[in-house]
Every structure is written in structure tokens, then in C-alpha cells.
Design a binder for these strands. Structure first.
Lengths: 243, 243
DNA sequence: TGGTTTGATTTTTTCGAAAATCAGCATAGT
DNA sequence: ACTATGCTGATTTTCGAAAAAATCAAACCA
């Protein structure tokens, strides 16, 4: 089941990278955990070098931290990190969405509406626990990307994407400790409308609030985990693969 | 001469990464050039895996581009890329400097003045061709970093640093085709003064102009190289190590 | 001629063994 | 008792050979 067909021209290292990224975001690999090669080699069924390459790439994405001569560690989570991440995300997303509204054409609008629809439909189908679904998370990511896709700046979009994925790990962490998510779909619809109406200032305002409120919720519901995860790293950073 | 003493705890891969980054920025490895392993292995005297790791990390910095199953290529240069880079840099640097002015303390100010002094002195010593010196480039980078060092956002600083280095390659390219640099030291002094005076709006304005004017100069003096470099990639992307 | 297949060659990617380094523990010296 | 030193086992890092994939060119057919 793990050995699904490789998309044409995809390298094994790239495949491991993606699986590992997913595992870090889903916290199957816990924040702060030591990443020992022997364990990972079994877990992902690849060699040292391939593993090392994937790890190096994850370091660049900020999901893994490397210390020369003493291996790799899953990037720890902390309130400071989350706040900084939020700060930068607000800056970048505001810029992206303003640019997209300026440059976007009809196709761009159509893609947004389509992405929203897909996300909305799956949400209805899944019921109140939609936010635990990996598939919904994917569509949610697609929707947010569609909003800024027409931004026209490859560099800004790339930066945005990396930040989004790091934030995703925090959202994911909190979603497990939260009885009910707030009405995000209402917010999404409002953002959608403001974008289609080409009201840049309003879209910026809404997206900023969307990001900030999510962060507040994460801290409220999962903040207690952060310190624990960090302590774990210092005490017994052990057996990751087993869990 | 190449095998200088390794700083304690530094890994061979990290060492290669740094040498390669320097070579790409200095265009010893030309934009768009195919990076063949056999050649690089001789050039840097390391094994395939180590090389591969360094390359992967450079991909993350945007200095190298990887295509699965068909190797690595030095990131090409183009006017579009430079313009986009400039756009994002203006956004990021403006934010950084405003934050630094807000949060910086006396030590921060002292570091800036020190960094400017070092740069200024070397500049006088080197005379009119200062901008060709690698050492001056280093101090120039240090000065610009010192301006924003107190910004307080690790994420923003990291993004800034990567963008700065990519832009550095463009500056470097143009510097070889330019008879005389403009009076950057005057601009630097003005930025310095506005920062010490804690005039955020002015500092933002000056740094933006500094970046934009540099870009304009690069395009004017080196723009003709960009297309050529790109064509080269398509036609005969050959022997890099030899040159 | 134009386009496709085949096979040899080059280049990239993967592998696991070997070397280097680190962390923990015991021993010796002050 | 306390720091320094040297061992031992665990872990990371490096290596180059072997496997996989792409490229190039000649041969082939329509």
C-alpha cells in the first residue's frame, strides 16, 4: 500500500521527501524528535544517502533542523515560533492577495470558485469532524492557494507555500484537541466574495483576521502541548519509528 | 589552499555547500550551466552522495534548480527573475528595517556603525575598484545585515538572507561590465543616519530606492548577458569545471 | 523525407559497507 | 570529591561501485 505507483519521472528521494513531510505535518514524527537513520531507514525503506537528501531538503523547508555531526531533529514547536510564523504569513498573504486581485483574470476567479466548491462539498459530506480529514486539509490548502495563484510573483508564492505548510502542522496539532472547529466556512466564503468583488483592502483584512484567529485558537487549544514537546526532546528523544 | 582547516564540528557536506554557493554567486559556475556529477566530483573532491546533498540544499536557496532524473542546473538569470526578486526584496527589507528600528537597542546601533566603518575603510583602501573585491562584498553584506539584525523575526531574517544572496549574484555579474560604480557609500551613509535617527519611514524609503536603483543599474550594464546565459543552457550546456 | 525503434553510451540515482565522530562510562590523577 | 583521559558502543557521515534512467545516433520502415 505504501509502494504506490510512482508518478512518471519522480525520484525515490522526492517520494521519501513527500512522505516524510506529510508525516511531520501530521505529527506522526513528533516535534522535537530525534531522527535516527537506522529507524528511518526501516520506516521508509531507503538507504542512508537517499534519506540524508530528503532530510536536507526538509531542513530548507523549516520542518527539520540539522546540527552538523549530530544528526537531524524534527523542528520543535513553540508559541514564539507560531507567533513569528503568523506575523510573516500575514505580511506575505496580504501582499499576495492584493497582487492576485490586481492581476487575476476570469480563469483565476473560476478556479477559486471551483476550489471553494470542492472544499465546501467535502465538508458537508464529512460532517462536523471535517477538519480531521487529510483530504479536506488538501482541499483547504488548494483553496487558499487558488486565492493567490494569480499573484504573479513566483518568489512570493514559493515563500508563501512553505510558510503555509509549517502553519499547517500547528493547525493539525490543535485539531485533535478541539471539540468543535469554529465556522471557518463562513470566513472562507467571505474571503471568496471579497476577492471576486475585487475589493483588495477587504480581502486583505479578512485574510489577516483568518490567519490571526486560527493562531489564537491553536494556542488556546494546543498551547499546552508545545512546552511538553520541547521538554521531550531534552529528556528522552527516543524511538520515533515505533509509534 | 582549498583545504583550509575545517571549523570545529563542520561537516564536509556543509563545506562543499559553502564553496559551491560562493562559486555560483561569483559565476565561476555560470547561470544555466548543467551541473554534471563527474566534473563536480573532481572540482570539489567529494563523493556523489555528499555532492548530491549540497546540491539539494542549494536548490532550497534558489541558486540551483533540480529536475528529477535529469540532474541539476545552476539557476538561470533573467530580467523577469531579477525584477521579481527586487519586488520581494523591497517588501521584505522594508518590513525588516521598520521592525529593527522599533526593537533595536544600543548594541544594535553600535554594530551598525561598526559594520559601516569597516566597509567604508576597506572601500577607501581599495580605491575605485572596491566593488570587485570579494572581501568588500562580504563587509557590504554584513552592513546590510546589521541594519536589520534587531528585527526580531527569525523567519523574516532567514527569508531576507536568501533573497540577498540571490541578488548578490546579479550585482556581481554586472560589476564586471561596469566602468565605475555609483556612489553607493553616500547612500549607505544616508541609510545609516536615518536608522540611527530612528526615522522608520525615511529608512524604508531609502532602502527601497537603494535596492531599486541597484537593479536598474544591473539591467543597464548586464542585462545583455541574461539572454545569452539562457540560450547557452539550451544549446551547449557543457564543461563547467574546465573554466 | 519524416518519424519511430533499437541499442550503446552517458549521466543520474541508489545502495550498504567503511570511516569518522560523538556520547556515555569507567579509570586514573590531583 | 572532582576534573581529566581513554576506552567502548552507538550514530552519523562519507565513499565509490552498482542499478536505473535518460540521451544520442544509427538503422529501419512508411
Amino acid at each position: 500500500m505504501r509502494d504506490r505507483l510512482k508518478p512518471a519521472g519522480e525520484t525515490r528521494g522526492t517520494d521519501v521527501l513527500q512522505r516524510m513531510r506529510a508525516d511531520i505535518i501530521s505529527c506522526a514524527l513528533k516535534p522535537g524528535a530525534k531522527l535516527r537513520f537506522e529507524g528511518l531507514r526501516e520506516m521508509y525503506a531507503v538507504s542512508f544517502s537517499t534519506l540524508r537528501e530528503a532530510l536536507s531538503r526538509l531542513v530548507a523547508e523549516g520542518l527539520v533542523i540539522a546540527e552538523d555531526q549530530r544528526g537531524f531533529v524534527v523542528a520543535p514547536v513553540s508559541i514564539d515560533d507560531l507567533n513569528d510564523l503568523t506575523y510573516v504569513r500575514v505580511l506575505v498573504e496580504r501582499e499576495c492577495i492584493a497582487l492576485a486581485i490586481k492581476h487575476g483574470n476570469d480563469d483565476w476567479e473560476a478556479d477559486i470558485i471551483g476550489a471553494f466548491h470542492r472544499m465546501d462539498r467535502l465538508q458537508s459530506r464529512l460532517g462536523s469532524n471535517y477538519y480531521l480529514s487529510a483530504e479536506w486539509a488538501k482541499l483547504h490548502g488548494d483553496f487558499h492557494f487558488s486565492l493567490v495563484a494569480a499573484c504573479g510573483s513566483p518568489n512570493l508564492l514559493e515563500i508563501r507555500q512553505k510558510l503555509f505548510e509549517r502553519a499547517h502542522r500547528y493547525r493539525r496539532m490543535s485539531s485533535q484537541f478541539r471539540p468543535q472547529w469554529r465556522d471557518k466556512d463562513v470566513e472562507h466564503k467571505m474571503i471568496l466574495d471579497s476577492v471576486i468583488a475585487r475589493d483588495a483592502a477587504k480581502a486583505q483584512e479578512l485574510i489577516e483576521r483568518h490567519i490571526r484567529e486560527t493562531t489564537e485558537n491553536v494556542i488556546k487549544h494546543a498551547g499546552h502541548l508545545f512546552v511538553a514537546a520541547d521538554e521531550e526532546r531534552h529528556s528522552r528523544a527516543a524511538h520515533v519509528a515505533a509509534e
